[in-house]
Simulated assay, not measured.
Amino acid sequence: MTEPLALRSDAEALASPLPPLLAEAEHLATTVLLGDHGRRRAGTGDTFWQYRPAQPHDEARSIDWRRSARSDSNFVQDKEWQIAQSVILWIDQAASMSFSSDANLPQKAQRARILGLAAAILLIRGGERVGLTGLRLPPRRGEAQLMQMAQLLSLDDETDYGSPEAQGMLPHSRALFISDFLGDMQAVEDALLRAADRGVRGALLQVLDPQEEAFPFDGRTVFESMSGGLRHETLKASELKTRYLARLAERKDRLQHLAQTTGWQFQSHRTDETATTALFWLYGALEHRK
């Protein structure tokens, strides 16, 4: 099990060079939440933003007479529009995610957890509410929320492959799923369709070990799932390569198609690639306007 404090520290280090990650709010009428931090635009709120010249449509009571007395024109105080978008994360914690083909490479689970928590840190810095799917951790802001998230993400699941959950998603909110997506594709499709029915948009990030994409096996090879529940032995592993790569490509194509159909975005990431690149992609994906 990964230590929560170490996971949080790694995620903080990854998040620190990036600007605040602000998830784009869609259908604001149903998702506006008043908060202490907001986007710098005029609207309903209590925090002063700027003075602006009064317009003909402004009511007399909205004029700041003290500021106006220092000028030949009348001025109005604009308030900052304080909105917070709920973003729900599902980070795969199943046994398949604990795979690493090289001691110098992180496990898929470690990379997924760091990316998920780093995204949460950036979201919360930007004033968003972040939580976990499955009603495990309702969306909130603050340091305590990040610590609880780190603790929950540090737990492992004994099942071979993970299945995303759509439970707990607020209508018209945002979501992020991080997994190897090597398990039941029907479960992924069901979760995305349920999310789409609620107006939820988001991002799918597939995390793979480089060996899973290259299939560098030859001769007698024993393939075994990380939990030990699945096992396959072959004397000619090289003969499986073409079929394996074709099926992996088909799976990626299906994920891409599901994402496009439901208004999500999809990207694949290898653990031998820099985590910062993946986090920048998440930044753009979660800001994407449909």
Rank of each mutant, 00 (worst) to 15 (best):
F280M: 15
I83N: 13
S86P: 11
S96W: 00
R125K: 15
M147A: 14
G38K: 01
M1I: 00
T277A: 15
A84C: 07
Y161Q: 08
E128I: 01
V87P: 03
L122G: 15
R61S: 13
R231W: 05
Y283M: 13
Q206S: 13
F75D: 01
Q110D: 14
A166Y: 03
G127K: 11
A42Q: 13
D92E: 08
V200H: 01
G219Y: 02
L152F: 07
D58V: 09
S238N: 05
Q267K: 13
M185F: 02
R254S: 04
F75V: 11
Q206P: 00
F75K: 11
A95K: 01
A187G: 02
A25S: 14
K252M: 03
H288D: 06
E80A: 14
M97Y: 01
R66G: 00
R67N: 03
P139V: 03
L34E: 09
F181H: 07
S100L: 03
H232A: 15
A119H: 06
L5D: 15
V200N: 04
T30V: 10
D58G: 12
M1W: 00
I83C: 09
Q186K: 05
L258N: 10
D218C: 03
A187T: 12
R141L: 09
W281P: 01
R201I: 04
A13F: 01
T242W: 00
D92N: 07
R201A: 08
T31F: 04
Q267R: 15
G263M: 04
V200F: 03
L34G: 07
V200Q: 02
D156L: 07
S73A: 13
T274R: 15
L204S: 05
G116R: 10
G142D: 06
T261Y: 02
G116Q: 08
D180W: 02
Y51D: 07
T221Y: 05
E224C: 06
R113N: 08
D78Y: 00
A94Y: 01
I121N: 06
L208R: 15
L33H: 12
A120E: 06
L182E: 11
L5C: 04
T234Y: 02
D92I: 09
R66M: 09
H172P: 01
S238K: 01
L152Q: 15
L235Y: 02
L230Y: 07
P53A: 14
K108H: 10
A84Q: 15
R125Q: 15
Y283H: 15
R141A: 11
M185P: 02
E273A: 14
Y161E: 14
D46W: 08
P106I: 06
Y51I: 07
D157C: 09
D180V: 03
Q260T: 09
A119F: 04
G35Y: 06
